[in-house]
Structure formats: C-alpha cells, structure tokens
C-alpha cells in the first residue's frame, strides 16, 4: 500500500489553470512531491532530469501532444516504467484506445473531482495511505 506522500508526480498541461487545479487536487489526496511542465517536450526533459513515479498529462498541448509524450516516455529506457495517466477533454474513445495501445496506465476525463482523480491513481498504484 503505497503512501501518497511518497509518490512523486509530474503534471503536464499547457494551461496554468489546469496545472494549478491538478496540483490542488493532488495535494488534497496527500501527494506532496509535485512538479509541472507546460507541454510534452518540457515534460519529457523534466522527466530525464528528475524522474517521477507518475505522470499526469493533458492530451491537447502545443509542441508535443500527450500521445507523443506518452510514446516518448515509453520508448526511452530510464522513463519506460513511469506510470502515465492521460487527461482527456471529453469522452474520446479513439484517443483512449490509442493511448492504451501505447501503454497508458489510466485516463481521466475533465472535469474531475479530487476523489475521482484519487480513484484513478489507486487503480494504478493500489490503495493509497
């Protein structure tokens, strides 16, 4: 049963608002170690410099979108096993299925409550303490 406080999370979204919202939801869950990046490219560089346990990434972003970011993470040995949760703007079956092909761990549809986000994280990490 992993402790929420021990999980290191990278939040990737091009919107300041969403980054702040996700951060505040994560803090409510009890996660303390949170960094963020404004797009997939920056997110990937951040991961290389400071690995995380979990990436929560938006899909629709400039430069490198969420799907390509996921592929980059999975294709590169040091980041390959990092858990990846994709945020989708609406229930988009095609996107979710493609993300699944590329090895996404879970997805969350916006908007979401902290409780919903927690449930999605727990589906990946097991119950959090």
């Amino acid at each position: 049963m992993p402790a929420a406080a021990a999980i290191k999370v990278l939040v990737v979204d091009d919107q300041l608002t969403m980054r702040a919202l996700i951060r505040s939801a994560l803090q409510e869950i009890g996660i303390r170690d949170i960094s963020d990046a404004p797009d997939g490219e920056e997110g990937f560089k951040t991961l290389l410099a400071a690995p995380a346990h979990l990436v929560i990434s938006d899909y629709n972003m400039p430069k490198l979108d969420g799907l390509s970011f996921l592929r980059a993470v999975r294709a590169h040995e040091p980041t390959r096993k990092i858990a990846f949760i994709m945020l989708t703007g609406r229930a988009d079956k095609e996107l979710v299925q493609r993300a699944m092909q590329f090895g996404v761990n879970n997805y969350v549809t916006k908007p979401f409550s902290p409780a919903a986000l927690r449930a999605k994280i727990e589906e990946v990490f097991g119950p959090l303490t």
């Binding site: 299925q97 996404v104 761990n105 589906e123 097991g126």
Partner: peptide, 8 residues
C-alpha cells in the same frame, strides 16, 4: 471501450 487500467 474495453479500457483496463494498467497497474504500476
């Protein structure tokens, strides 16, 4: 859609 969360 047949999605299954992937355990870490």
């Amino acid at each position: 859609w047949g999605f299954k969360p992937l355990m870490f």
